[in-house]
């Protein structure tokens, strides 16, 4: 039987090298041992986090990070399947692209990063109406709402969505992102946080959750 630490390091490396075969081999071996689920998830996330940090310093191009992201997903699915339950068990989060905007690649990447870091993601897709956002935040009891818009014309929908979500489901942490946005615009819209890209997403979301929980202004 393989050494526990060796398996966890192997998982981390499989993510970094987006090696699906090695991922499945390590997970298969890990399921035969006493390694607990959280340790496996943590090893996968460590591999992704290293890639994310290398992307921050331009040591790896974005597609390499995405390959690692896909590998983490595959790993999470395999773990959930082994345990006989649905993937995703953390903080509930609703994400979607605002009405009128068909650009969803950025949102898809962000949703996967959230999922990979154990948020329970409810992806509403693209061209989502204000009512659909509010209904889903309420039904899923979402702690976080992540809004995406890739155009200046569709970005204009955000202040109204934010206003209504804050009115109808106070305490929801609202993150915004997308090409036409910046921190100043996000603040002026009344959002709780802004993430420029997948690189800063997790830190910015955690900071926004802390601010909202503490009742501190952004």
């Amino acid at each position: 039987m393989e050494d526990k630490q060796k398996l966890l390091t192997g998982l981390e490396k499989a993510v970094r090298e987006h090696n699906s075969e090695e991922l499945n081999r390590c997970l298969g071996a890990a399921f035969e041992t006493a390694i607990v689920e959280d340790e496996l998830r943590l090893a996968l996330f460590r591999g992704l986090e290293r890639q994310r940090r290398r992307m921050m310093t331009d040591d790896v191009p974005v597609p390499h990070f995405l390959l690692s992201l896909d590998t983490v997903h595959e790993g999470f699915k395999r773990i959930s399947l082994h345990l006989g339950r649905e993937p995703g068990h953390g903080t509930p989060l609703v994400i979607g692209v605002v009405e009128g905007d068909p650009h969803d690649l950025g949102k898809n990447i962000i949703a996967k990063v959230y999922e990979a870091s154990s948020y329970r993601v409810y992806d509403l897709g693209r061209e989502v109406s204000v009512d659909a956002f509010i209904r889903n935040v309420q039904e899923k009891e979402a702690k976080v709402l992540a809004l995406s818009a890739m155009m200046s014309t569709t970005m204009a929908m955000m202040p109204e969505i934010i206003r209504r979500v804050k009115e109808e489901t106070p305490g929801t942490v609202i993150m915004v992102g997308g090409a036409p946005l910046d921190t100043a615009l996000a603040k002026s819209f009344g959002a709780d946080g802004y993430a420029e890209s997948a690189v800063t997403l997790l830190e910015q979301t955690e900071a926004a959750i802390e601010r909202v929980s503490a009742g501190e202004p952004w």
Binding site: P63, L66, L67
Partner: peptide, 10 residues
């Protein structure tokens, strides 16, 4: 399809 493929095609 994977996010990686989505990005390459996009």
């Amino acid at each position: 399809d994977s996010i990686y493929l989505q990005m390459v095609f996009d």
